[in-house]
Structure formats: C-alpha cells, structure tokens
Design a protein around this nucleic acid. Structure first.
Length: 843
RNA sequence: GCGGGCGUGGUGGAAUUGGUAGACACGCCAGACUUAGGAUCUGGUGACGCAAGUCGUGGGGGUUCAAGUCCCUUCGCCCGCACCA
C-alpha cells in the first residue's frame, strides 16, 4: 500500500479512460439540466479565473449527473476580437492561425483539469460554420427592423487612420500613436435594443435566482424615467427645441437651455458661427466614454439665441451649447434649473445665470436642493407637492400643445459595427442603384478573406484588393460589400442556443432549443453583470420576435463568481516580480536570483501587468488537477474574490493525501458482506455522522456553498481517521462511511475519487454512481443544545431532550445555578424561547 | 462623475438569515515519531487578564430581550460605465 497518492499517474490514467468511454457525451433524456460557463476568449493561457469558473461548473455538472439529470455541459471559444489583430500587427501572425493555436493550448489545459465537457458540441465563433448562422440572424433582424443603420461617433486616431476601442484611448490619446483622439461621425449598424427596454425591465421579475445586485444594475442601466417633453420656441428663429425633463415641476426655476454639441440644430448654427464651430471641435476632442463625459470640466457656449418660456410671456432663456448634454439621451436638449440640480447649479455659477428656488424643503435647505418639498415661485404650481406639480404642469403643457408626458430610457441602441477585420462580416452589399441589399441566404457565409495585410491603416477588409468588389445580387451592377464586422458581443449573445444543436443546418433547432433552454445554471464573472447579460437577454427576445422560439429569458439561474487575486511583489527598483521569482528566507521575502529584499504589495486581481498571475498549467504540473480544484472550491464562497496562496494549495494537497491514506488504510476493514441487524453505539454514531454529512454536503452543493462542502468533507474525514472498528457492525458502518466519502468527494476530486472507487473494489466509473441519499431517521438529534442568555448575554448552554415542552424547559433554566447567580434574585421580566436555539432570561 | 458591491482572529473564511461569533482550513507555538517526507501524529492558538471576567465582526450613532446580520452616517477597497472580452 502506498501512502502517497500518485496524482500524475492517476490523472493521466483516468482522463484517458473517461475519453475512451465517451463518459461526458450528452444524453437527451428528462429531467434535463443545462449548466453553462461563460464563453472564454482564447488568450492562449488558462488563468485561475477560468479554472475557478470551470471547476464550479464541473462540480455542479457532476453532482446533477449523479442526481439523475441528463446534463448538457458544453464549452467553446469566443474567438473573434481585438487581441488577434494586435498580435497580427505586432508579430505578423495571421489572426486565424494565432487564434487556433491558442484554442488548442487552452483546450489541452482545460482537459488537464478533468472538466466534464462534451467536446462534440464545441463552438468556435470565428469559424464560418458558426458565423454563417450569425449572418442569417443579422438578416432576420434587418427584416424585423431590429437592425438598422445610422450615424454615430467613433474614437478616431488621425495618425494611425484607424478607429480605436475605448481601451485603446489613454488620457485622450491613441495608445500606439499618442496622438490626440477626436470623435468622428460614421455611418454604422445598430440593433434596436431600445425597442425591448420595457421587456428587459419587466422580465427581470422572471429571474428569481439571479443575484439582486445584478438585477439592480440592469434596472439602472436601462434607466427608465418618466417625465415630460417640453417645446421651447426660439425667439430669434422659427425653430422649436424639444426638451426632455424628469423634473417638469421645476420649469419656473429654469434659467437656461443646454443643447448637445452634436445636435443637428447646433451643427447648422456652427456653419455661420466660427466661434461655435471651434467650440464643437473642442468638445469632440474628448473621447466617447461615459466616464470621460461625466468627469470632464463642464463647459458651455452662449449661442446668443433665446427661447420662450412656455408659461411666462416675459421670460426668455439663453441657449447654451453644453458639453455635458448627450445627444443619445432624451432629446439632446435640457433645461437647466440651477436651484435643484447640482450640475445645473455649477453651470449657473460659472456663467452667472440666475438661481431661483422653486421647491421649499421642510427647513431652509442649502442649494442645490433635490429633496422632497412644496412648490414656490411657480405661479399656478405654488403649494403643490413635487408629484402633483409634475402632473399639473404636464396637463397645462398639453392644453397649450407645448408638451406632453413622456417615458425615456437611458439605454441606447447597440452599435454593432466595427471597422475591423477579425469579426463576423456583416452580410450586406451597398449598391449604387439599389442601396442596401442583403446577401442572399444561399450565398452565406460571407467568409473573411484569409490573405490580408495589416500594413495599411484602417480596416484590412476595406483595403483588400478584391474582397469587397461584388455584383449587386439585385440588379447585377458593380457594388461594394459592407466592410464593417460585428461586435464580438454579438457572437456571445446566442452561443448558448447553438450548443443545443451545434451541427444543425439552421442557426437554432427549435426542438433542441425547446428541450434544453433556458440554461438552468449560468456561471461567470461579475464583470459581465451588465453588457453581456443584457445583450444575451435582448437577443433572446429579438430571436423570439423573428420566430425562432417562444423563449423569453436565456438564463434561469445565475451565479456570478468573484475574481482570483494574488499578492503582488516588487523588487528594490520597483519592478513587478512573479511569485516564482520570490522566496521567503528567515521570514523575509527576497528575490530568488540575487537575494535582495522584496516588498510585498496588497493582493490584487491576477494580471500580467502586475506579474501576479499563477498559470494553471504550473499548478496542475506540481500538484495535480484535483488539488487545484479543491483549493479553488474550499477557500472562498464563489461570489467573493478568491485569494490564491502557496500555503492554501499546499493545504489542499495534504488533504488529498489524507483522503488517499484514510481509504486505502481501511481496505481490509471494510470487506463486510451483509448489513448487520444490530449496531453498536459507536457504529450508530458513525452512521449518524455519515448521513448528516450527506445531508449537509447536498445542501452545500445545492446552494453553491462549495467552501462549506469542503469543510464538511474535512470534518467527516477527521472523525473517520479516529475511528477504529472492533466489531462487524462497526466494520459495516465504516464501509458505508468510506464509500459515502468517496461519492461525496467525487464532484470536486474526480480523479482521486475514481482511483479510490477502484481501490474499494468497484468497476468504473464513480462518475456514474448515484448520489447518496441521507436516511432521515439518522439525521435527527434526540438532544439539542440551547444557548442560555441572561439579559441578552450568553452565560452558558443547556442540553435538553428535543421532546421537552417550552414550560418544562423554562422551569429547568430558571433552576440552573448559573442563571440564579447571574439574576441575583431579581424578578423575571420576560422569558424568550426560540425552539432549539436560545433562551433569554430578562430580569 | 454615475450605478453596483465588499469590509469578521496573524491569514482565507463559517455563523440554519435577528438567536452560543470565529465551523473548516492556512499560519504560528509546544511536543511525539523517523523508512528524513512536498512527511505524519498529538496538544494549544481572537485580544486583555494570575483568575473570576472584560472587550471584540472597518469607524461613529441608532432600533431590539438579542445585531456580523436591520437603519442612519463615515472611511477604505473592488467591479461596471455602452468599441477589451
């Protein structure tokens, strides 16, 4: 008997055996369970964040399989995207070759972890087999009016002659060129997600098992607000400006109108006003990200024009072009009420505009004040509450035909055009005669050309010598292909459906989708709480509109996992060091190469830039997959950040060996054939623990308390270690306990469990064994321990029979010597009894 | 700037959701063992105190018989912000 568990030999052996037996091939029987981890980008290296994600999914998949479900547990690759193009520009590799090699490497690493994926259903989004269906969906969206084209702004790098992603813009400059970035207007494709805004809000109610914080974030993101549309006629011109406001009640406190620099009216004005044109150019020097807009200095340009106040004949308001007014939200024009809005207040102070309070709080409130109150200085609104004033002002506006009630959403339509090569081509042809023409379905896929060059600025599809030149499918005249490709979020918005019929000739097979969807458990990082999840939800509704299915929500349950973190290290010169370059000598951290001191920084999310990454491959090589899996499950609850430590992985490795010793040491003790009729007290005690452990572990996994799951396994094995059978019923109980232990450990430690299952004399595979069931008669306790409190402070415990009545317990407690001494003969004021938990004596 | 979270021993965390704070580990301390191993085993370990006991869940305040848990306030850190995925 070996006292050390040989993980290398075992993991290789069983992974091979599982593959040969096609153990993870999906069966299509009821009940079904679809467990899905978020589609990874194939960066080439499996990091611990992935490993944690897949381990969690794997435990659930294995547990559900053992519980009798037909489990769908697929994996694939979010294979389009910027990094492949960056690699192409830097190293001259082709995006396709680079991506496929990364996929190969990552797949190997995933398999080394022993995750139970059905690889027959693998998806690769950059493969024409996948994106041809996405192109079909795009055309369906176009038919339904969900896809459309309009102008919007991009980050333009004037030196590179390229559109940049937000992350490529650093402090307003291009990351490679360092040139100031400007916002440039381009005609682009959009998806009409705003048509589904209300559905996206309403259907959150169906998602009972989504974390509340994710639902809240989505609600705020969609940002429904009720307010009014108010018309302001210009005094000097014939035009009328439409303003959306959520505070129509403060209309009498308005002191200016702010209009977006991107508003068509402003652009027209700028043509005859060079100073305004300069101001607009200044505003466009700012990036497109929300954070930049919000944190930029608030600037205005007085157009010299004024608008008429809808109710006050003698009041006009100056019209300012303001850099903080967004064209995408509301109407692109606001009215400013400085007394009751912080941003308007700052603006009014800066440009010396009047500040007239129109809402009185309970006491004198400092301005700007946006709390509850009663209207004042507001003509017919005086004395009304804010809510009544809103209703009244809208009623009066409607009478004068100068406004109306209106609901708006912060949510903007989804811009899906990317001026890039490595993405799904948009299947559209621009014909000089017919306009925008869909590529006929039988011509799909519109495949990416493979011979491309990144030598020229801009999109290689655009500069390709032949690719974009085609004949119009409609009239046959010379036409041009659309050279924009789709945002990679589109690829990941419907992949969960493709897994149900990965080889089907249509994008989605309705029967298969009907069978498997919705996804029963979706697992992924909290960083996707808004965009990816919202887009996938939108797609589900849009696909329903196109007649693909009747599904309204894609993911029934959602688990958002935290990040994997690691301590950071810097040497004396301040350079970051990898953990393996650092060593602890005599309690001090030193650099391995030269022994100089190393400063440990706080633990942060693993990232290449800070060198605090631990590659999965290294851990699997050193400790094996099961140790890595166990550690990632045992330390933190899944939704919290995870702290990767050397000590932690060592501790998990020791536990694996302990399990191995525990089972193998007792192999001769557990060869008992028949179930005994009478159990000794020790045997019964052990059986109770076994069944309680089954109960707890089952609960823990069901609730995704994987750290407690592991803690219960450890507690159970600690007791088993001390147990020495001296009689046949005790042998039987130990036999039951060890078998149970192996079965319970199997979802977390599939390789070790498989090895121990064989050691116990069974045929493979432990994977196919049913999940143990707790015997209810063995998990109830005869006695319970009550906490005894005097005046709310715990002063002791009392063990009582669970049969005793409350009165009997009360008498017992009041007679306790400790209770008597603490209460010092004071009269009993109150006696609080929480059955099975606590009794509080208040004197 | 806006939206969402988190904060418990030296460390990761547990606490049947308002009911014995610190389960289970890591680390550390003391000891045992020797086929010297990536060991293993036994005991101890929140702080203060000789003890009885007192204090303890980022800080301050509140509700309650009872607060890590609920409310207010404050500090620190993290995630997202629409072209990274």
């Amino acid at each position: 008997m070996s006292t050390r568990y040989n993980f290398r030999e075992n993991e290789e052996k069983w992974q091979k055996a599982w593959a040969e037996a096609s153990l993870y091939k999906t069966k299509e029987t009821l009940p079904k369970y679809y467990v899905l981890e978020m589609l990874p980008y194939p960066s080439g290296r499996l990091h611990m964040g992935h490993a944690r994600n897949y381990t969690i999914g794997d435990v659930i998949a294995r547990y559900k399989h053992a519980s009798g479900y037909a489990v769908l547990h697929p994996m694939g690759w979010d294979a389009f995207g910027l990094p492949a193009e960056n690699a192409a520009i830097q190293h001259g590799t082709s995006p396709k070759t680079w991506t496929l090699e990364n996929v190969r490497l990552m797949k190997e690493e995933i398999n080394s972890l022993g995750i139970s994926y059905d690889w027959d259903r693998e998806i690769l989004t950059c493969s024409p087999d996948y994106y041809r269906h996405e192109q079909k969906i795009f055309l369906d969206f176009l038919k339904q009016g969900i896809a459309y084209r309009r102008e919007s702004f991009v980050n333009w790098d004037p030196v590179e002659g390229t559109v940049l992603a937000n992350e490529q813009v650093i402090d307003g400059k291009g990351w490679r060129s360092n040139a100031p970035i400007e916002r440039r207007r381009l005609s682009q494709w959009f998806f009409k997600i705003t048509d589904f805004a209300q559905d996206l809000l309403d259907d959150l109610a169906l998602l009972e098992n989504w974390p509340d914080q994710v639902k809240t974030m989505q609600i705020n993101w969609v940002g429904r607000s009720e307010g009014a549309l108010v018309l302001f006629p210009l005094v000097e011109k014939k035009d009328i400006l439409e303003v959306f406001t959520t505070r129509p009640d403060t209309l009498f406190g308005a002191s200016f109108l702010g209009i977006s620099p991107d508003h068509p009216f402003v652009e027209a004005l700028a043509k005859e006003n060079p100073a305004l044109d300069t101001f607009i150019i200044e505003c466009r020097a700012q990036g497109t990200s929300q954070k930049e807009v919000d944190t930029a200095e608030k600037k205005g340009f007085n157009t010299g024009l004024t608008v008429q106040h809808p109710f006050l004949k003698n009041k006009t308001l100056p019209l300012y072009v303001a850099n903080f007014v967004l064209m995408e939200y509301g109407t692109g024009v606001i009215f400013g009420c400085p007394a009751h809005d912080a941003r308007d207040f700052d603006f009014a102070v800066k440009y010396k505009l009047p500040i007239l309070p129109v809402v009185k709080g309970v006491s004198e409130e400092p301005l700007p004040y946006d709390g509850e109150g009663v209207l004042c200085n507001s003509d017919f609104l005086d004395g009304l509450s804010i809510n009544d004033a809103k209703k009244e002002v809208i009623r009066r506006l409607e009478l004068k035909k100068l406004g109306t009630h209106k609901v708006t959403y912060k949510l903007r339509d989804w811009g899906v055009s990317r001026q890039r090569y490595w993405g799904c081509p948009i299947p559209i042809i621009h014909c000089p005669f017919c306009g925008i023409v869909s590529v006929p379905e039988h011509q799909l896929p519109v495949a990416l050309p493979e011979s491309i060059s990144f030598d020229q600025p801009g999109n290689p599809l655009d500069s390709h010598p032949t690719w974009k030149y085609v004949d119009c499918p409609n009239c046959g005249e010379a036409a041009l292909r659309e050279t924009d490709t789709l945002d990679t979020f589109v690829d990941s918005s419907w992949y969960f459906a493709r897994y149900c019929s990965p080889h089907g000739s249509q994008p989605i097979d309705p029967d298969k989708a009907e069978f498997w969807l919705p996804v029963d458990q979706y697992i992924g990082g909290i960083e996707h709480a808004i965009l990816h999840l919202l887009y996938a939800r939108f797609f589900t509704k849009a696909l329903r509109k196109c007649g693909y299915w009747s599904l309204s929500e894609p993911f029934k349950n959602l688990l958002t996992q935290g990040m994997v973190c690691h301590e950071t290290y810097r040497d004396q010169s301040g350079s970051w060091l990898y953990p393996h370059e650092v060593e602890r000598r005599e309690g001090k951290l030193v650099k391995l190469s030269d022994g100089t001191p190393v400063k440990a920084g706080r633990s942060e999310k693993m990232s290449k830039s800070k060198c605090n990454v631990v590659p999965t491959a290294k851990i699997v090589e050193e400790y094996g997959a099961d140790t890595a899996r166990l550690f990632m499950l045992s330390d933190s609850p899944p939704e919290r950040d995870f702290e990767w430590t050397e000590a932690g992985i060592e501790g998990s490795w020791r536990y694996l060996n302990k399990l191995w010793r525990l089972v193998t040491a007792h192999l001769s003790d557990v060869k008992v054939a028949r179930s005994p009729e009478v159990f000794t007290e020790n045997a019964l005690k052990l059986r109770k623990l076994t069944h309680k452990t089954i109960y707890h572990v089952t609960q823990d996994i069901e609730k995704f308390h994987f750290n407690r799951y592991v803690a219960h396994l450890r507690e159970f094995s600690n007791t088993l270690e001390e147990f020495t059978p001296s009689e046949s019923s005790e042998n039987w109980a130990l036999h039951e306990a060890l078998h149970t232990l192996v079965l319970l450990a199997a979802p977390a430690l599939p390789h070790l469990a498989e090895a121990l299952w064989a050691e116990l004399g069974h045929e493979p595979f432990v994977f196919n064994q049913p999940w143990p069931k707790a015997d209810p008669s063995l998990i109830t306790e005869d006695n319970l321990t009550l906490a005894i409190q005097i005046n709310g402070k715990t002063r002791g415990t009392l063990e009582v029979s669970s049969q005793l009545s409350e009165d009997a317990i009360k008498d017992l407690i009041l007679e306790m010597p400790s209770v008597r001494s603490y209460s010092q003969g004071k009269p009993l004021k109150k006696f609080i009894y929480i059955p099975g938990k606590v009794a509080n004596v208040v004197v």
